[in-house]
Design a protein around this nucleic acid. Structure first.
Lengths: 224, 224
DNA sequence: TTGCCGATCAAACGTATGTTTCAAACAGAC
DNA sequence: GTCTGTTTGAAACATACGTTTGATCGGCAA
């Protein structure tokens, strides 16, 4: 049985519980009892709770960032010098995410929610860790976005990227619940791939919206 | 001075700290020491920490939902039978938020972040409280959205509303952090009003995007 | 004044947290 | 089998939390 099982069981349980309840709302005792390992195992194998959080992210993000780099390589090769379009770039990202080997059927949506939480819960250490560790594929994605939307100012593009991230993380993180609601209300089944297929055009349209800063149409509001 | 301003000082401190650090990461001792009141005052005046959280929301949300109802009334009156457009509906919402009387200069951004946190941190009691207490303006907003996008199928509209909600909640919930990043990277200052002014066109464009379900294309698609 | 009652205060309560300790169990090399 | 280093186990550690207690204060009516 070696050490193997313990580390992975902790990571599995932690991943799921963090996604369900957030980081500080999840105690080590919940994790170890769900993983059926001793409480001390976390500090023995990972050193601290924060280090465990980092490990949960690293286990998914490291192979994912490799997959993503390959997808970008292939895309740029296919475009042969021309910058890829926004749609192509977004599709390369979502395809990479969807195609990642999943530990279980909830895999991708769990991880989307974790990414959302990482950004939302102002856990300083997590943000710093992610930015340091995965800056390369992140900046490459940013460069592709920039080349695909040359008409946008840097500030506009920055905010619209945040909007995209929000729509994605939020939707994917609660996609299970949302799918259930839809099933009950309208009697429609939906897969994660279908959600992505609806999300990408939404994002692309928002990203390429005609310039912002419009005043409320046909209204007599003024700025002080 | 009556019951002194203990209650208000607690609410002020709690609002700010919750927005900065989240709910469970903020202790009653932080709140009472920032408010310069005794620790027991929270339980004396509010009963519990959860009740304090509810009170923080109620102090803002109750007058806000009244303002919002008025804005919707006015909008529908102005439209004279015709359903308001998507842009008008979204603007009515953001204008109502921005125009709320602020306790201080950070007022609105603090509260946006709180709303984002409420959706993100799965604090069951908070979700339940908000849904029960403010269901009326919420369903009215949903009805307006439906009338403003008759071209969408119910399923498409359902998902796109989730995307809008996600972009908004996520951005607002981390707006302080995002503003800081922008400040450091590009040396740009941003107000919440400006974020909203960028968000609304993004949402409207995404909501009205030409139909979904495209496969990763080799062609750039543009919106008519 | 006296009596009263809501508001404040310092202190303690019980519980839960992350982390540490140290002995026992284990595996593999000799 | 014996030794050696790694992994598990039960228990304790110190700290922080939300909440409760009971004494004390302060204004006001009778």
């Amino acid at each position: 049985m070696a050490q193997s099982d313990t580390v992975d069981r902790i990571l599995d349980a932690a991943e799921e519980l963090f996604a369900e309840r957030g980081f500080s709302e999840t105690s080590l005792r919940m994790i170890t009892s769900k993983a059926k390992v001793n409480l001390a195992a976390v500090n023995y194998h990972f050193g601290s709770k924060n280090a465990l959080i980092h490990a949960v992210f690293a286990r998914f993000l490291t192979p994912f960032s490799a997959t993503l780099e390959n997808a970008f390589d292939e895309l740029e090769a296919r475009c042969d010098g021309e910058p890829p379009t926004l749609n192509q770039t977004l599709w390369a990202l979502t395809e990479s995410a969807v195609r990642m080997p999943q530990r279980n059927e909830k895999g991708i949506s769990i991880f989307m929610r974790l990414l959302g939480l990482a950004y939302t819960q102002s856990q300083g250490h997590l943000r710093k860790f992610l930015e340091q560790e995965y800056s390369q594929p992140f900046s490459r994605f940013m460069r592709l976005l920039k080349e695909a939307t040359p008409q946008l100012s840097a500030v506009d593009r920055y905010w619209r990227i945040q909007f995209m991230l929000g729509a994605t993380a939020f939707t994917m993180s609660s996609s299970d619940a949302l799918r259930d609601i839809l099933q009950n209300k309208l009697g429609v089944e939906t897969t994660v791939q279908e959600i992505a297929a609806r999300l990408v055009p939404f994002l692309a349209a928002g990203m390429q919206a005609e310039d912002a800063m419009l005043v409320p149409p046909a209204s007599k509001t003024s700025v002080a």
